[in-house]
């Protein structure tokens, strides 16, 4: 559960059709964004429903940096008003379809940034963005050797020689 702080009306303006939300990143940057843009996030939608039930406005504190949050907002702004099948709560897990062209450019970032975005997207429950990031990571390791995969994702071979040479490891994956 995120920590929620009260916000007065002057901080979060807007009573009309396009209400504004105040999102606070882990580096304490306050970012005002239209509720409509963030409606792709099931997490944010649930928070907003909660505000309506209590008739109180709140800022939503998020556990990731403003840099990552701005990237997620950029994604949500781009697809504002679009129906993306993957965001349907009943949609099947992402399949073989390639990463959308715009998403490919959007996700052309370094490995750590990509991992931060997927983590944030998962927290915010934006299934389409999680799927695109996961596909991008799967593409990074496609056709690579075990050693190359380790290097790409920054992990070490931690098997003992015994584990590495055991029949159950090599003969059956």
């Amino acid at each position: 559960m995120p920590t929620i702080v009260s916000v007065d009306d002057s901080t979060v303006p807007g009573e009309g059709s396009s209400r504004l939300l105040l999102l606070v990143s882990s580096d304490n940057k306050h970012i005002v964004v239209e509720e409509d843009i963030m409606s792709r996030s099931r997490f944010i939608s649930k928070q907003v429903e909660g505000f309506e039930a209590t008739s109180q406005r709140h800022a939503i504190l998020l556990p990731f940096s403003s840099f990552v949050l701005n990237k997620v907002i950029e994604y949500c702004s781009h697809y504002r008003g679009y129906y993306l099948l993957e965001d349907d709560p009943d949609a099947a897990p992402p399949g073989r379809s390639p990463v959308r062209e715009w998403d490919q450019e959007f996700l052309d970032v370094d490995r750590n940034m990509l991992l931060r975005i997927i983590k944030a997207a998962h927290y915010l429950e934006i299934k389409s963005l999680v799927g695109s990031c996961a596909r991008a990571i799967a593409d990074m390791i496609r056709g690579k050797t075990t050693e190359e995969m380790r290097e790409i994702l920054g992990v070490e071979n931690d098997f003992t020689p015994e584990e590495e040479h055991s029949p159950s490891s090599k003969c059956t994956g």
């Binding site: 750590n112 991992l115 983590k119 998962h122 996961a134 799967a138 992990v155």
Partner: peptide, 18 residues
């Protein structure tokens, strides 16, 4: 490592797509 700190649902999803 950042990849090890992903939520438990994400790595299986990456593997399935791979």
């Amino acid at each position: 490592a950042p990849v090890s700190r992903l939520s438990p649902e994400i790595l299986p999803l990456i593997f399935e797509l791979h």
